[in-house]
Write a protein that binds this DNA or RNA. Structure first.
Lengths: 173, 173
DNA sequence: CTCAGCATGTAATTCGTTACATGATTCA
DNA sequence: TGAATCATGTAACGAATTACATGCTGAG
């Protein structure tokens, strides 16, 4: 499960609770998970069973008790192994491309209209991502060159797609 | 469910059985489904319940009976509606990028080695895709300009990623 | 008084996968 | 004899989602 490795990565930066992780996942556009408690608390239990993390239960005044998870030596080792393993090739899922496979069955004006709103949605989406990444790269991760490269490429992939959509619209206009 | 729309698309080309669809899905690298019977036969049942397809049961000598599904008028309508609807922005999932977020925790030589095999795997993968698409575009779909554009862009996305990996390797060498 | 934040977790449901069950035919 | 193709389907499981349950605190 990829999410477990990512949790190891996040815990390697600092100890965190399930709730912290939840917020990280739901606020990060880069991490492709919704940040639902089900998955996270289950993953943490399993990581603990496997001895990769340690837990410290903390009672705090005026707040619910929390469980702080810390990456153990075995966890660091597992993380390092993952970082050195060869990842799977990406899965570029693109609903638009599927739709275009049968686009000849509707009038071209309809496809053009569809692409118009698609381009609008997409460029807004890309703007959000760009801003999101900008904030990330100017703060913490800025010293990790590979991480910065990765994020910029992630954006570039979306921009590449957006550019293609724009050119396609022009050829249809 | 996106797979149901895609089934409508496939049935719009010619009537097919569940078994036919299964083969289409498992042999097409473009359609991101494994082609497992569970999903397909269930989808066909539901499409039938909704009156989008009609079934004709055929007894054939020396072979198991089969159910031929044909797209009805309501199904054509549903397909056309889908083709005109605005698709979701793509989800570019890329395990490599996640790994690079914490790559500074291992030695750079290890990351370089990882990228070496990744590039090898990926370029092979892309070659397969390119050949796959080449066969597709030279035959049936060749007359549908938008479909051809879509497939070429799909490949181009992978090639864009591959090029980036190559440049990244050079900067690390 | 209500809503957001903190913090844990469970339940129900969807989508997807592989593996299994059945049974005939054809080809090596 | 054993594997591959045709053709239907079920079972078991995994990954992910949303919604729900609980309960306390502090701000508007």
């Amino acid at each position: 499960m990829l999410i477990k490795k990512v949790i190891l990565g996040l815990l390697s930066e600092s100890p965190l609770t399930g709730y912290d992780l939840k917020k990280r996942f739901s606020s990060s556009l880069l991490l492709p998970w919704s940040g639902n408690s089900n998955q996270i608390y289950k993953a943490l239990l399993e990581l603990h069973e496997d001895g990769l993390v340690t837990v410290e239960e903390q009672q705090q005044p005026n707040k619910p008790p929390r469980k702080l998870y810390t990456l153990g030596e075995k966890g660091h080792q597992a993380l390092r192994e993952w970082l050195q393993s060869t990842p799977e090739p990406p899965q570029l899922q693109n609903p638009l491309l599927l739709q275009l496979l049968w686009a000849h069955q509707v009038e071209q004006s309809a496809s053009r209209a569809m692409l118009d709103t698609y381009e609008e949605d997409l460029s807004e989406h890309v703007a959000t991502l760009r801003e999101h990444i900008r904030r990330q790269t100017t703060t913490a991760a800025a010293d990790h060159a590979l991480a910065v490269h990765a994020m910029q490429h992630w954006i570039a992939l979306y921009e590449f797609h957006l550019e293609w959509v724009r050119r396609l619209r022009e050829t249809l206009a």
